[in-house]
C-alpha cells in the first residue's frame, strides 16, 4: 500500500493556516534586514535560473531566525562576529612567509576585495579547478608570500574569509555556472539531491521540501550560504560554509566529505547558484 501522504498532509496544513492566520511554512513575513540603520540587504528574491523550477521564492536564513538573533545582525556593535573580522583585518596587514609580504603588499586596502565573495566558488586562473575563497587565500599565501597554507577551518582562515566577505556585504550573490564550471555545478546538484547516510536524507529533504517546518527545535531554512561565514551562538564561534555542510551531512548518520574536498566545493557552487540575488551578509549571526 503506497499512499500519496503529502497531499493529505498539505490539506491539513492549509486548514491549520486558515485557523491560525499564518503559515508556519513561511519565514517571518515582514522583517527587513537593515544593518547599522543604513545598509539594506536583500533577504527575499525571485529565484534565479538554477532553481526557477523548484523554488517560488529564495529566502535568506536570517528570515527564519528569532527576533533577538535577527537583531544581533542588524548592528555591528552587537554582532559577535565583528571581533573576528577585526582579527582578519589585522592579519591582512601582517607580513608572513619568506617573501616578506602581507596581503596588503599586493592588494592594498581590503576594500579592493569588494565583490569578490559574490562569485565564489569559481574556476581558478588556469581554469583547471574550482576554488573556494579559502583556496584563493591559500594560493596567495603559498605562491606569493612563501607562507604556509592555513587549514580550511582554522581561526586564521575564518578570520580572513570573514574580513574579505564583509567587503561584499549588500552585494548580490552571482556565481558563474558556465564553461568549465558547468560540470562542477552538475556534480554539486547531484550531491544536493542524494539521500546520504543511514537516515537517507538529502539536502533537499530538509532545505527544499521542508523549509519553514520545525525539525525538533530548529526552524528549517532554505540552507542558503549568503550569510557565511556565520557566527553560530551555539558554537560561540565563526563557522565556515564547508563546516556547516559537514555538520548537516553528519546529522544524516553519514560518513561526511572533508572540508575543502572536491565534493563540498561542487556543492558550494550549486548551493550558491540556488541563492542567486540574495545579498552577501558575511558575517551573519545564527543560533
Amino acid at each position: 500500500m503506497r499512499l500519496p501522504y503529502r497531499s493529505k498532509l498539505a490539506a491539513a496544513s492549509v486548514l491549520a493556516v486558515l485557523a491560525a492566520g499564518a503559515a508556519f511554512a513561511d519565514p517571518v513575513p515582514d522583517a527587513e534586514l537593515v544593518v547599522n540603520e543604513e545598509i539594506e540587504l536583500v533577504t527575499r528574491v525571485a529565484p534565479g535560473p538554477a532553481v526557477a523550477d523548484v523554488l517560488t521564492e529564495v529566502y535568506s536564513g536570517w528570515l527564519y531566525r528569532e527576533s533577538e538573533t535577527r537583531a544581533m545582525q542588524m548592528d555591528d556593535f552587537d554582532n559577535p562576529a565583528m571581533v573576528f573580522v577585526d582579527q582578519g583585518l589585522d592579519m591582512w596587514d601582517t607580513v608572513d612567509g619568506t617573501e616578506g609580504k602581507s596581503c596588503a603588499s599586493c592588494h592594498e586596502g581590503i576594500e579592493s576585495m569588494k565583490g569578490v565573495r559574490t562569485s565564489m566558488p569559481k574556476m581558478n586562473g588556469a581554469a583547471t579547478d574550482l576554488w573556494s575563497l579559502e583556496n584563493f587565500v591559500n594560493d596567495c599565501r603559498t605562491e606569493r608570500m612563501g607562507a604556509e597554507a592555513w587549514k580550511w577551518n582554522s581561526n586564521d582562515m575564518k578570520n580572513m574569509t570573514s574580513a574579505i566577505s564583509l567587503q561584499s556585504r549588500g552585494e548580490p550573490m552571482k556565481v558563474s555556472v558556465e564553461g568549465a564550471a558547468a560540470d562542477w555545478w552538475e556534480r554539486g546538484k547531484e550531491i544536493y539531491y542524494t539521500r546520504y547516510g543511514q537516515l537517507e536524507l538529502a539536502c533537499a529533504n530538509c532545505h527544499e521540501a521542508n523549509a519553514g517546518y520545525m525539525i525538533r527545535a530548529d526552524h528549517l531554512s532554505q540552507g542558503q550560504i549568503n550569510g557565511f561565514p556565520t557566527y553560530r551562538l551555539k558554537d560561540a564561534g565563526v563557522v565556515s560554509i564547508h563546516q556547516r555542510f559537514v555538520g548537516c551531512v553528519r546529522d544524516t548518520r553519514a560518513e561526511t566529505f572533508a572540508a575543502g574536498s572536491e565534493e563540498f566545493r561542487a556543492l558550494e557552487l550549486y548551493v550558491a547558484s540556488r541563492g542567486e540575488g540574495l545579498s552577501i551578509e558575511g558575517v551573519s549571526v545564527r543560533p
Partner: peptide, 13 residues
C-alpha cells in the same frame, strides 16, 4: 545506504 556513517560521528562504520 549511500555513505552510511558510524552513528553521528561523521566517520565510516
Amino acid at each position: 545506504f549511500i555513505r552510511p556513517g558510524d552513528g553521528y560521528t561523521g566517520k565510516a562504520p
